[in-house]
Amino acid sequence: MTNPFLLSHRFKQVGWYVATASFIGLGLQVFLGFDILPFLKFGKKVWLDMTNDTFSDEVFCILLLVGLLMIAFSAEKVEDERIQRIRLGAFQWAVLTNSVILLLSIILIYDFNFLLVMEYNIFTTLVLLIARFHYLIWRDNKITLDL
């Protein structure tokens, strides 16, 4: 049985590289204020009165999302029906956990901080999915080796 939503296995490694690089880039840009991609700067302040004068954080965000998608949606080396079931389980767990975190955030976090929650929330479902899926595979392999 083939899964039409999966990329081939080699995209997983590419995804890790892209996600790691853009995560580091985003961190340096947003939290430490470095200007990584100066050629993406433009002069005017646009869109309401937010000081949006460079496209580089948008580029890093897109690359991070694409990288995470590549990791989450690429096949394992030996892709079989058991792996697909584990992946489906991880999807359900990730969506549920993400929703619980979001519900708690709605209750506990307000104002500008909630905007940050929504920003992080762009990536949390995928991060939770990847973490859960690889944990389950790791646990499975460990049990198999112990037998």
Binding site: E81, R82, N141, T144, L147
Partner: peptide
């Protein structure tokens, strides 16, 4: 039968 060894193991130990 084109599955992983872990899958055979999981079937044999009635986990899958």
């Amino acid at each position: 039968i084109q599955v992983s060894r872990q899958t055979i193991n999981a079937i044999e130990s009635a986990k899958y």
